[in-house]
Design a protein around this nucleic acid. Structure first.
Lengths: 156, 156
DNA sequence: TTTTTTGCAAAACCTTTGCAGTTGG
DNA sequence: CCAACTGCAAAGGTTTTGCAAAAAA
């Protein structure tokens, strides 16, 4: 059986290889951070990631997490989205491209189809010469649950 | 001549009246901040505003600026938009409603038609139950000038 | 060994808060 | 006079940075 059995292993290898090809080094914090990114479907904040790394390796500094995320982003491995209060969330670039909707009430990040802003992007390019980096900023508002909660409490 | 000659005066009066109606007081910092907001077409950060107030009244504290902006926002006089790095920009709510495009390179905020995101808002509401607060977050990307500069430098 | 990466601590950035003193009405 | 507002300074949360020690290649 030469087929890899866990796709995560392959993914890790590929990412670490990219790091190496770039003249980078494979270190424990980096491996752990990549694992966490691969293991999570969610959009994690730098602090979320730091917390998880530190659960297993308490000595890893938060600044290392930031520096690693920056490196991975430069390599095109991950992307980050800004949600409303200056916090960034990170996720693998390889995931299906998608837009982000951030709930101002509960903080949830909901994924929307990548094409959501295509028309808007075309329009601002045509009319204003503006190149939208659509994946880079979340659209903000309230998610289904929080809208429902709101309606319930104000209606009652 | 009972007609006001400068529309700015009327606007100031109206805003200060709202403040007063709400049980608020008319103070020097508040008057100055409202004037600055009225005098500027731009989207100002809290710090921009603080700087301008302090040019004339050096003792006005930045925290007062934040508190005043918060008060004015609660009264519906102003709105704020979040641009990519955790900085908020403030502008009068009375201005023509519009969307904001923030340039990641030069920091400019470009206004776009208010209706820009109407279709998107309708779609995420229908498909995801998400209530977009369209005016609240800027779309980010690169403005015409910065796109041109980029093309020039990478093309050369 | 050499260069990259790390951990730590400190600083930077934007914003909020506590509190005593000031001010508007 | 009294509540609302202010200035100051300190703290909050997130991210960045300087630097010497540690680790990868």
């Amino acid at each position: 059986v030469t087929e890899p059995q866990a796709s995560g292993d392959v993914a890790i290898e590929r990412i670490l290889a990219r790091l190496k090809d770039d003249g980078g080094r494979i270190t424990t914090p980096r491996v752990e951070i990549v694992k966490i990114l691969l293991a999570s479907d969610e959009h994690l904040s730098a602090d979320d990631i730091a917390e998880r790394v530190q659960a297993a390796h308490p000595s890893v500094a938060t600044s290392t997490v930031y520096r690693t995320l920056e490196t991975l982003e430069q390599l095109g491995v991950i992307d980050h989205v800004h949600v409303a209060h200056g916090r960034a969330h990170y996720h693998l670039a390889e995931r299906d491209p998608h837009q982000h909707l951030a709930c101002t009430v509960c903080g949830a990040i909901i994924e929307a189809p990548a094409a959501l802003l295509d028309d808007v992007a075309a329009r601002v390019r045509r009319e204003l010469g503006f190149e939208l980096e659509a994946h880079h900023s979340a659209l903000i508002g309230r998610c289904r649950e929080c809208v429902a909660t709101d309606a319930r409490s104000s209606g009652a």
